[in-house]
Design a protein around this nucleic acid. Structure first.
Lengths: 152, 152
DNA sequence: CAGTTGGTGGGGAAAAGTGGGGAAAGAATG
DNA sequence: CATTCTTTCCCCACTTTTCCCCACCAACTG
């Protein structure tokens, strides 16, 4: 459908449920069947990646291109899939986050949900804060070189 | 449609609403669906960027070319999208500015809206004033090096 | 100087987020 | 195989936020 963007700080209740913000639900295509595939993010700083089902299928397409007989490819694949799980919305548009991922991402009472193009990212707000602040380069510097020569 | 230009100083009401100047609305194409995508500007000095929906889609096209598995690209993407939000006009041609961006840009009662080609910029009038005055180089000097050797 | 367009403000209905009780399904235990 | 405990999920209720609508005033235009 359209890219995810924006962020919301939502609460994770005692039952481990997390609501998906309305504006992000609107970016999902009906083909995703109200289903997310979650796994761990690729960062040093821990976060959860959540792909709508149809976007996940594109990721699977890329994974299929890897060489299972290459040691590094196999390690990447194993790790990614080891953490993966499929989550379906309940009738209140919430998902139950797997305990292992909640523990991995060190999420407690509140979660920061960030729209990042083809997926959502779920962070412990404090960890994300430190991710932003501990950078040597400022956003202004990175923006200039990353987008340099293009528009924006 | 056509480039944004000019400036207006408008008030932000208690509900966080800001009207979009009529002359700037006229520069928007109908494809923008009376919708803006706002995010933080790339400057050191804080301001809000507001792209009409159709212009934003061009930005998204650029973002899609970045490599999500590269650390710097990801940082840029995340920061840009973290601050992004989609705003739709109410029936009085106003948008509700997200609290986080209002805080980021230190906007209070009044906002300075500047037309800047493909987007609008929303500033705290005093911050924009100091941005202009604190420059060592004069406009005349910068103009020569930036545009020197080209037309104008 | 009347009519139209443009900016500002606030009340109230509708939507979205949050939390908890309890039934159904599944796993563990004797 | 039956009983008990745990987990999952539907439903209802409450609170907050958003946005639609109406009204007013100021400014420009013919």
């Amino acid at each position: 459908m359209s890219f995810f963007k924006g962020r919301e700080t939502y609460s994770v209740d005692d039952k481990g449920r997390l609501a998906i913000p309305a504006k992000m639900r609107k970016s999902m295509s009906p083909e995703s069947m109200e289903t997310f595939v979650v796994t761990r993010g690729p960062d040093e700083d821990p976060c959860i990646y959540a792909y709508p089902l149809d976007e996940w299928q594109k990721v699977e397409g890329q994974l299929a291109g890897l060489n299972q007989y290459n040691d590094r490819d196999r390690f990447f694949l194993r790790t990614l899939l080891y953490w993966a799980d499929e989550l379906i919305f309940d009738k209140q548009h919430r998902v139950m986050l797997p305990k292992a991922l909640v523990e991995f991402a060190q999420i407690e009472k509140t979660a920061l949900i960030i729209g990042a193009m083809d997926h959502l990212e779920i962070w412990n707000p404090e960890i994300f804060e430190s991710y932003l602040t501990k950078r040597q380069e400022s956003y202004a510097e990175v923006a200039e070189t990353v987008m340099g020569g293009r528009l924006l």
